[in-house]
Design a protein around this nucleic acid. Structure first.
Length: 216
DNA sequence: GGATCGATCGGCT
DNA sequence: GCCGATCGATCCG
């Protein structure tokens, strides 16, 4: 049985964690069955200055997990009907998290399709709300410790992508100021059919990742 | 492939 | 009241 990714992995600058999460396996134990997928797309949200982050207005009841210790889940409801999964990064007190935007399906695919209402395989986990539905991730996982041996949701090291296989682009669906709009804090596996977002971003957006030193 | 629109509700202004 | 880190259906080219 592969080991769960430890808390020290998440206790680092968010841009580094985001890039390193590509290739990791997200595992959900659902009614005794492993449902999993390989992470192929993420977005980083960090700091009070990030106008696209839920933490931009300071701590609230909703965004509290973002201010908490690393290695926990921050799950929120959006548009009154969809859930999104974030992985909390950086030391406690600094608001930061990585949004998981797309997976390459690996285990329990038939069960995942059932949870998705029989939608096509290609649409199974392509998008942050779709993957939550496929892995049965909802509000109950908000604040969940992903590094605990008892957790029903965790991460495992799986594939490791070389730098040239990883591309970046501005984040999808953000509304903040010019800086937030242009910040290349979305990372994805170049050319993967499992990546979400507008095709335009996935073509033009293919450029080298910024160094982690760009953070802050 | 791209644009538009409706669904639906918790958390903030 | 307002609006969103989205999705799916529908229309168009």
């Amino acid at each position: 049985m592969p080991t769960r990714i430890p808390r020290t992995f998440f206790d680092r600058p968010t841009l580094e964690v985001a890039r390193d999460l590509l290739g990791a396996r997200l595992v959900r134990l659902y009614e005794g069955e492993r449902l999993s997928g390989r992470i192929v797309e993420v977005e980083a949200y960090f700091g009070l200055d990030d106008r696209a982050s839920h933490a931009r207005m300071g701590p609230t009841a909703r965004n509290a997990p973002m201010f908490g210790p690393p290695g926990y889940a921050y799950v929120y409801l959006i548009y009154g009907m969809h859930f999104c999964l974030n992985l909390v990064t950086e030391p406690e007190g600094f608001p930061a998290a990585v949004l998981v935007r797309a997976l390459e399906p690996l285990e329990g695919i038939e069960r995942q399709q059932a949870l998705r209402g029989g939608r096509p395989l290609r649409d199974l986990t392509r998008g942050p709300a779709r993957l939550c539905q496929a892995l049965a991730i909802d509000r109950a996982f908000n604040g969940c410790d992903l590094c605990s041996p008892e957790a029903q949701l965790w991460l495992e090291f799986d594939r490791r992508y070389p730098p040239e296989a990883v591309a970046c682009s501005p984040r999808v669906g953000v509304r903040g100021d010019a800086r937030a709009l242009s910040a290349p804090w979305r990372f994805f596996v170049a050319g993967s059919p499992w990546v979400s977002g507008p095709a335009s971003l996935n073509r033009q957006g293919i450029r080298p990742c910024p160094g982690a030193e760009e953070e802050r």
